[in-house]
């Protein structure tokens, strides 16, 4: 167990070194953005989108809202998706979905990242 652990530790930086130059810088940025977007979406004290939506990769989701999947098919225009997250009440005045942008639950840059992540689903 222990020795296998050590090999992994040794190999990890090597693997990274091998991998990094293979990815163009833009793709690395994008991967990081998606990762951060997912974290923001899942974090209970941030987006907590899982409280209401089934999202791939997220545990114990609620079912108050529709599952978030195939988002590019449903939102060809990314800015419409962002608008839904910024203030869902615009489209549906009775919506229970929190208006993340309007009441400052998330910062603008955080909403950008969450939008990227959701759009990737």
């Amino acid at each position: 167990m222990r020795s296998r652990h050590r090999t992994r530790l040794v190999l990890a930086p090597v693997a990274l070194l091998l991998l990094l130059p293979a990815l163009p810088a833009a793709a690395q940025d994008r991967a990081a953005t998606l990762e951060q977007g997912q974290q923001l979406a899942f974090d209970r004290s941030k987006g907590n989108c899982l409280a209401c939506h089934v999202i791939e990769g997220g545990e114990s989701p609620g079912n108050v809202g529709p599952p978030l999947m195939m988002m590019q098919a449903r939102y060809p225009d990314k800015s419409e998706l962002r608008a839904q997250i910024w203030d869902a009440h615009e489209k549906n005045p009775d919506s229970i979905m929190p208006p993340y942008g309007r009441t400052y639950l998330l910062q603008e840059s955080e909403i950008d990242k969450v939008t990227e992540f959701i759009w990737s689903l």
């Binding site: 899982l50 209401c52 609620g62 108050v64 229970i96 929190p98 208006p99 009441t103 639950l105």
Partner: peptide, 24 residues
């Protein structure tokens, strides 16, 4: 509040739904 929910949202409109692991 900041989330802009009413009591009625959680305990009427969506009563019976799941909010994470809580049944409303």
């Amino acid at each position: 509040g900041q989330f802009q929910f009413s009591c009625a949202h959680c305990h009427k409109t969506y009563a019976g739904s799941k909010l994470r692991t809580d049944v409303l």
